[in-house]
Design a protein around this nucleic acid. Structure first.
Length: 500
RNA sequence: GGCGCUAUCGUCUAGGGGUUAGGACGGAAGAUUCUCAAUCUUCAAACCCGGGUUCGAUUCCCGGUAGCGCUACCA
């Protein structure tokens, strides 16, 4: 964390990009997507990703949020090559930058107070004029300004924007974007307390860190001409700008807490696996190049494929709605594809959070059971909720399932009797053996096998939905299967007791 | 208000001067009968509006509309 950036001894070739979050909140969905695209771009081109914490808003930035952002990036598997640098530790550089601009005449001291500005702004609004800084202090001569400043008068430093002409840049996503200079006001560079504003610190850092491509949200498009002007005033070469369309909520307004979880780490807590989230995010506003007309099933893309395929020209121009249903679909696909070994630690974390003590800790058994269950999982949470009865004997039956499959008293009696049959059978307890016995038993009692199977499923798992019954029995083992069948009536009573 | 960006199924999107406008998620229906949150099959579903250019526009141009963004001594 040196106050000044020092280049590595052998600078690697390739582009230099940065992710520059402001620690005024946790890593949110939009920020994560920006980080992901920068990461993908850097990895694809063999470039360098720099992490820079933009904490010049002293009031709102906290160390806790810095940690939250790093945690979010780690969860998503996004690593960086340099940093994190903190802007608060590079203050001297911004002041030098401002001083340079002051001497070159690109900036001037502004002695207006916050209250004066506020007053003039509201007056302008009342008269229907644009609430723009009208350059009051620009009229002060450089000598007078310097003298007053030296005498201890408090002043901010403002950029002396051009009054005529226009400023344009070629955006890698949106193409050429042009703004009339008359639209740009004399924005503040250095606050009166000596802390730089966003525009100054960003450009100073991007120049110093030799950032070649600025990949950031489209909400910065309108800021870009100001920054282009700053690059020019500083005599620095322009980077490539690539603005990313924004992510919206289902009502097409900007994604916010209103729409549910906006911090990425909340998705971990909801049982989403990081690769699924990353895959989902990558496809929000970007399409891989080879998705032609007859190219189905190319949407499941692992990190290596994403890196190989990613490029700036697949980025779309329009904002994208965050589609939770599609995220959940990616999650089921990834959970299904994960080997049990990889799933187990994630599932154990869910158990820990749910206070579930697994009855078996034998790894082979755990892997087999996870493999049985994972094709039906929609979230890691399922392993501690709807699949709970596989791993512990303390579970609550789903009342709706009991109502649907165990309402019949005869079915319940027969299940108990079935359990006794299993207990008395000398046949080995196998998938086909248990099925044969059940079907014979049903025939003998002149019952539909399905009624017993469905009832038994609820008795064994507490759920109306689960894998094939006889596979469930194998997962549970003979002992637990028999115990639960024996306790059929108790289970039904437990579920049907009206909650008070 | 001013300035900027954008506009293809509900959503993410492909495409592109002549196409049955393609895919994915979601939805619906059917199959399976041992449940469905699994699996398989099928179906519905879109080029914002108005002008222009053109033999022909969803595609190119202009205007409108709508959405979003910026308009701070926030970032």
């Amino acid at each position: 964390m040196s106050p000044s950036f020092s280049p590595p001894s052998t600078p690697p070739a390739g582009p230099r990009v940065r992710f520059a979050p402001s620690p005024t909140g946790y890593l949110h969905v939009g920020g994560a997507r920006t980080a992901l695209f920068n990461w993908l771009f850097a990895r694809h081109h063999g470039g360098t990703l720099i992490l820079r914490i933009e904490d010049t808003d002293l009031e709102r930035s906290t160390a806790e949020m810095v940690e939250g952002i790093l945690q979010g990036m780690r969860w998503l598997g996004l690593d960086w090559d340099e940093g994190p640098y903190h802007q608060t530790q590079r203050m001297e550089m911004y002041r030098e930058s401002a001083a340079k601009l002051l001497t070159s005449g690109h900036a001037y001291y502004c002695f207006c107070t916050k209250q004066e500005l506020e007053q003039r702004r509201s007056a302008a609004a009342a008269e229907g004029r644009p609430p723009r800084y009208e350059g009051t202090c620009r009229k002060i001569s450089r000598e007078d300004g310097a003298r007053r400043r030296a005498a201890g008068e408090v002043a901010a430093v403002r950029f002396a924007a051009l009054e005529a002409g226009s400023t344009a840049f070629d955006d890698a996503v949106f193409g050429r974007v042009e703004f009339a200079n008359s639209e740009l006001e004399d924005f503040v560079l250095l606050r009166s307390d000596g802390v730089p504003t966003y525009h100054l610190s960003v450009v100073t850092d991007d120049v110093d860190m030799r950032i070649s491509h600025i990949i950031r949200g489209a909400d910065h498009i309108s800021n870009t001409p100001k920054q282009v002007l700053l690059y020019q005033a500083l005599g620095a070469p322009l980077p490539v700008f690539a603005h990313l369309p924004l992510i919206l909520g289902p009502d097409k307004t900007r994604l916010s807490k209103r729409h549910g979880a906006t911090r990425v780490i909340a998705y971990r807590d909801e049982g989403i696996v990081p690769e699924a989230f990353r895959n989902f995010l990558a496809l929000l506003g970007w399409t891989p190049p080879e998705s032609g007309p007859d190219n189905a099933c190319t949407e499941i893309l692992g990190d290596q494929q994403l890196i190989r395929l990613f490029d700036l020209n697949g980025i779309s121009h329009s904002n994208a709605v965050f589609d939770r249903a599609k995220l959940d679909w990616f999650n089921t696909e990834y959970i299904r594809a994960y080997p049990a070994e990889k799933l187990l630690p994630l599932i154990q974390e869910e158990w820990r959070k749910a206070g579930l003590e697994p009855a078996h800790t034998d790894r082979d058994w755990l892997f087999a059971t996870i493999n049985l269950l994972k094709p039906r999982a929609r979230s890691l949470k399922d392993f501690a909720t709807s699949f709970r009865a596989f791993f512990t004997d303390t579970f609550q039956p789903d009342p709706a399932a009991v109502e649907k499959f165990l309402a019949d008293e005869r079915v319940r009696r027969m299940l108990v009797e079935l359990g006794e049959r299993y207990a008395g059978s000398h046949e080995t307890f196998t998938e086909s053996g248990t099925e044969r016995l059940l079907r014979d038993f049903a025939a003998e009692k002149e019952m539909k096998a399905g009624a017993l199977i469905n009832g038994a499923r609820v008795v064994l798992t507490g759920q109306g939905v689960a894998p094939s019954l006889f596979a469930v029995m194998m997962a549970l083992g003979k002992e637990r299967t028999l115990a639960r069948l024996k306790a059929t009536q108790e289970l039904a009573a437990r579920a049907m007791t009206p909650e008070v």
